[in-house]
């Protein structure tokens, strides 16, 4: 059973078709890259995977549930099981970094006293222990991306969807982020990474068994050996 599956999905923004007949299964523990030119619909496809958008055609299933059939509360609960690194990070600028990372825990009513070690460990894992009190606008691009990744995994989700997790960072930092994602995959998490950075994808091939999906002319294809 796939963790997330798209069945003949089509999506149009106000009548303008962007994706058509997209079918893909993210099986448990798999690692996928999603690539394609800017504007091809990578972010849109990721949004379809966690119910931020509902397909105009076809069906999206997550943990065997049809996302279009979930009520609002169920959608919220689903998002606690799917870790998302948003392309623009989506922090609350008035809250210190530690709170931003802990946000999913806070809104799900977890006892923060008990979760403190979890948070500390995670901030250490992404190398941000010293930045706990910084406000998001004070962070560098690499720090933001690592914080976004930490927030995505703090609920120990089964699946991680990362939208351009290495945007705005230099090569060394993108390698570091890639390592973290590979580490998560080794822990058994299903990972989908949207990226237009082909060099990164090539570098990843040495570290992990990854399938590369490409959006081309509204359709999703499996990229071949040219990568």
């Amino acid at each position: 059973m796939a963790v997330i599956s798209l069945e003949q999905v089509g999506y149009s923004y106000s009548g303008k078709e962007l994706l058509s007949d997209v079918s893909v299964d993210l099986s448990p523990g798999s690692f996928h890259f999603l690539t394609g030119p800017s504007g091809s619909g990578k972010t849109t496809l990721i949004k379809l995977c966690y119910g931020a958008l509902l397909p105009t055609v076809g069906r999206v299933r997550a943990f065997d549930a049809d996302l279009a059939a979930l009520d609002r509360d169920q959608t919220a609960l689903l998002r606690r099981r799917v870790g998302v690194v948003h392309q623009d990070c989506r922090f609350l600028d008035h809250l210190p970094l530690a709170d931003n990372i802990a946000l999913p825990l806070i809104v799900s009513g977890r006892d923060m006293g008990q979760e403190n070690t979890n948070l500390t460990d995670l901030m250490h894992w992404v190398g941000l222990s010293a930045r706990a009190d910084a406000l998001p606008p004070e962070l560098s691009g690499g720090e933001r991306q690592r914080a976004a990744l930490a927030r995505a995994v703090i609920m120990s989700p089964d699946v991680i969807l990362a939208d351009e997790p290495t945007g705005n960072v230099d090569w060394d930092m993108s390698q570091r982020l890639l390592k973290l994602l590979v580490e998560l995959n080794r822990m058994g998490k299903t990972v989908l990474v949207a990226s237009h950075d082909l060099a990164l994808i090539r570098a990843a091939k040495n570290q992990v068994q990854a399938r590369v999906l490409r959006i081309s002319e509204k359709r999703l294809q499996l990229a071949g050996a040219d990568l």
Binding site: R72, D73, L77, V107, S108
Partner: peptide, 9 residues
């Protein structure tokens, strides 16, 4: 953002 990280209405 709250909605995105799983907050219920």
């Amino acid at each position: 953002v709250l909605r995105l990280v799983g907050a219920q209405d």
